[in-house]
Amino acid sequence: MINFEQVAKRYPNGREALSGVNLRVAPGEMVFLTGRSGAGKSTVLKLIALLERPTRGQVTVNGENTGQLPARRIPAFRRRVGVVFQDHRLLTDRPVFDNVALPLIVADSSLKEIDRRVRAALDQVGLLGKERLLPLELSVGEQQRVGIARAIVGRPPVLIADEPTGNLDPQLATEMLNLFRRLNEVGVTIVVATHDLHLVRESGLREVQLDGGQISNEPGAAAPLPHIEARR
């Protein structure tokens, strides 16, 4: 579903964020990315969502090689990858409904379809009945869940989340994790970047550790050749 082959990313300022990363995430898998700040977690997520393109190597998501995707096909690509941010990036002047509906609106869905699917997504994150509220009228945890509803409303096969529990207390963080696991159970491939090691260990799911732009806990993952698939 997601495949990194010998991926390096150097930013225009010269900083090499990733070097020689090999990572394979199978369809329907849920993976945690861990590591210190600046280890390259965010860069991996940006490469998956095609917010950045790799400097070297190949990133394949949903069968598309992101390095070669022409600009006009980027919107269609992004509709198939849901993104959840730590700062959730909601439009604060729009009610919850409009925020969640945005991915459907840009995809020209019918009004009936939008109404139905926005409600379904809000129901999944437990916010049904709060459609008319503005994001700032909600608690931090609820805002985060609006961001998740927006990410899943278009039913993308891939969902990525950057520190989704960063601003939440432990109880809310566990709820958030359970929400992701429920989405994963219905077949969504999920990559979550997090600092919360406790949460990762508790989940018992695969953990990919990044250190200095390389994967440090999966043998062979960072080796240039021969290519060895990342182990579960």
Partner: peptide
């Protein structure tokens, strides 16, 4: 700007 960024992020085309 923020609105445009989010719209592009969720797959809004330039035309949209």
């Amino acid at each position: 700007r923020a609105e445009i960024e989010v719209t592009k992020l969720v797959g809004g085309t330039n035309a949209f």
